[in-house]
Write a protein that binds this DNA or RNA. Structure first.
Lengths: 176, 176
DNA sequence: TGTAGATTGTTTGTATGCAAACATCCTGCG
DNA sequence: CGCAGGATGTTTGCATACAAACAATCTACA
């Protein structure tokens, strides 16, 4: 069996302050060893950047989601949940409630409609609006899947204990 | 000026255990008040689910990113960083190093090539491989933007103090 | 009453993301 | 040596995301 990195180019795990092209990078020497130096710069370690970590955790989460709820996506589930708990909403309001912009929500709602889980109807009072309503099938699906939704969150945070999960949620909340 | 929610449908912020369609939802009574009850179920509150929070924090992060580095995307920057620090990589290895699958990395590298930040060349030793190499422009761009990269991470976590940031990173790391 | 400015929804264009099916190539093992 | 199984890259199809530009509509205010 071929190892997954059989013959990678001369690996440069030794972060020595220079890129492969010889250009100087930020010094890898930790701050505590550089007291008194004026032009300190942290090294840029990709794996230590929030954005990169967020992406990776999200990837894992979405994989878990589709294992538990294969019929629809996480975005679609979020829309169904909002409609189930708040009642019919205009397309735009639904989008705001589920944190997606107008262009995105149009696509999501369109697919939900195609699946027979929601309907779109013109608002009689406001000709601009499209009211999105959950169908019986849609309501049944959300109701039946709430438990799975909770299991998905639990599975995503499985490596953490109860206190750590609460802590993580609190911290993420403040970054919203 | 019209308020943003001028005439929303009869808002249901009172989470009372029933959806708008009358179907029973999970009870909203906290666990601690239900000691001894066998069939306990937590309510499903979308805003309390990791996935939803991750998505929202990511949205905010990407907005911050494009404010600081408008020329390229976060994905593209991640690729440039890997190439700068690890040297030329095959397209697949680059993808793995930056956490994206083969189909995705093809598109990202293609766009980086179109921007003149990277080149793709056939590997002489292995006819399957395409070696991706940073151009001078690419190397110059990463070098010049490392500081912005750090600022982006700092800005994203701005609401947290030093200890909280470290804690968040540690927790996210364990969910990878 | 009228209209400037906001809101709603659509469309277009660009950029991820990932599954699945392929064609091609490489390597270890019998 | 030869081949099975793994690795590499491509393509297609579907589903987010979001900026920007529009057309239609609504509303507050002059």
């Amino acid at each position: 069996m071929q190892t997954s990195c059989g013959d990678l180019p001369p690996a440069v795990n030794d972060f020595d302050g220079k890129g492969f092209d010889g250009k100087a990078l930020a010094p890898a020497v930790p701050r505590r060893y550089r007291r008194g130096v004026s032009e300190e710069t942290e090294p840029y370690v990709l794996d230590d950047q929030v954005g990169y970590l967020l992406r990776r955790v999200t990837q894992r989460h979405l994989a878990i989601f589709s294992q538990h709820i294969p019929e629809i996506t996480a975005m679609q589930f979020a829309c169904l949940v909002r409609l189930h708990q708040q009642g019919p909403l205009s397309q735009n309001h639904l989008g705001r409630a589920a944190s997606m912009d107008a262009a995105t929500v149009k696509g999501v709602v369109g697919r939900l409609e195609k699946l027979g889980l929601v309907t779109r109807a013109a608002d009689p009072g406001d000709k601009r609006r499209l009211t999105v309503t959950l169908t019986e099938a849609g309501a049944a699906l959300v109701s039946a899947r709430y438990a799975d939704g909770l299991r998905i969150s639990a599975a995503t945070m499985e490596p953490l204990n109860r206190a750590e999960r609460a802590h993580l949620m609190a911290l993420l909340n403040r970054l919203t």
